[in-house]
Design a binder for these strands. Sequence first.
RNA 1: GCGCCCAUAGCUCAGUUGGAUAGAGCAGCAGCCUUCUAAGCUGCGGGCCGCAGGUUCGAAUCCUGCUGGGCGCGCCA
Length: 547
Amino acid sequence: MMQRYIEEELRRSAEAAGLVIDGPIPFGVPKQEGQGHLSTNIAMMHAKRLGKQPRVLAQEIVDALPASALVAAVEVAGPGFINVTFSDAVYHAMLRDLDAMADDIGRSDLGIGRTMNIEYVSANPTGPLHAGHGRNCAVGDTIANLFAWNGYAVTREYYFNNAGNQMNMLGRSIYVRLQHALGNLDVPFPEDGYHGEYISHVAESIATEHADQIRAMSEDEALAFCRKQGETWCFASIRQTLETLNIHHDVYFNEDTLYGTGKVVATVEALRDRGLVYEKDGATWFALTQLGNPQDKVIVKSTGEPTYRLPDIAYHRDKLERGYDVVVDVFGADHIATVPDVLAGVKALGFDTDRVRVVIHQMVTFVEDGEVVKFSKRSGKSFTLDDLIDEVGADVVRFFFIMRAVGTHLEFDLGLAKEEGDRNPVFYLQYAHARICSILNKGLERGVTLDHGADLSVLIHPREIELVALLSRFRSTVERACENLEPHVIAEFLRDLAGAYHNFYHDCRILGAEPPLESARLLLADVTRRAMRNGLLILGVGTPERM
RNA sequence: GCGCCCAUAGCUCAGUUGGAUAGAGCAGCAGCCUUCUAAGCUGCGGGCCGCAGGUUCGAAUCCUGCUGGGCGCGCCA
């Protein structure tokens, strides 16, 4: 927000120097001390075109700038940067503006009037969520929050398939355990069956509650019954886990509805009309090579069943037809191969795939005491997301899964995550929040209340100015994190913010300072509290008022 | 073999879309509480930004080729 105090004047003085700039002027924040508060490279970018030396052009622009009470100094530096040093008055004005935003600090209207749909989690009901699912859950939900904070109307969607081979295998796995529970020990467990404890658990509950029913059923009926019981149990488990993580979907979309509404068949025919479908070896193929993809793929098997690709295309078409301005998919790296096929299909049907944004997060490895923790979904000794939450807590789970860029492999350090002390980055943020709350409460006890009209011009300490400077960047950080689908940016920002606050707290006595200074510092602390609170809300972690 | 992702301090990772002398946490060492929460703060040491070219005023960042690791490449999802 700093740049708006200088941008138009700079634009006019650039024009006076013969340089017309369309669009926003690019600004950067210098890293080094003594390089001002804001820096622009416009002179270097355009010097060549104007046939001037960068430093000469920069100086001409600077000379044309009118004097302003808000600007303490403007200088040409290095190869041709224009560095602007603001007077403290700019920071006082920014703090005043931030305070006026009340509880909406960080909120943006970037997406106001726009709609978005985000699909995440989307695990089929074949078992409880495992620890690795956590990244998808946390990344998806945090991105959803980011869009909401940017003004979008957000629909959180969970896509699932309760038919097909995997579900049949779930039913058979339970069925076999059930037979064992009923004394038929010679029924063999299927080769690729599910081994989790929950299989036996569901089987035993059927054995105790529905034994007579089962004995009266044919094998097919019993298998279907087991499958349904398994699905019910798995969904209850998944939803309970998501509840613990404070994740709530607006829509549970069953793949099956795409068949009921005829959208799957319609999709095949629409592709066929465009000459992109052919029959071979008894199967129906999608001619992806005609669309520039490396190989054609089967979309309807010779058995007559579609492969996952076809309903996926129909599903994306459905979402786009629902009119969302933005459609976001959150996938793990193991699903990366499906993305180009689905997008090509949707595009071939005439939809604008620019509206679709796909977030692909890399895999997670869990580490404890320097050792990689191995686990497998079907090995029996699975590591569920519930186990992880029990070990380290929901806040830590959410934070750890989003604190690294989605494109990089994530190492989840269980030892670090379990620490409740100073090494754990979540507590560092929450502690800053709790510390501010504590001061505000202590102030109330002493009769010192928040004064929104406080004279802010007394804030001149470097720690105070640094803190305001950081706060002024919160909103643009939220916007950038949303536009780039990068939740970790918020975690980084909050760490900086907490650090800046701790520095301020350490060097600047609040309660007991001279009356005008006390009021101003208290206001600064409260604005920081609201920013930190909103940041933690975006991440979906708790905002404790005492620790 | 092909596609996507990654490679930065001892370890885990940032790096504001191409800017100035590459940053943080942890680990190590040394300091700071009779005063608003020491779950905090301060200082020190630590680097061939995987390698080699290219693009330009300027590259950790963009392009090409290597090396090493991850994930995929099914009439499974």
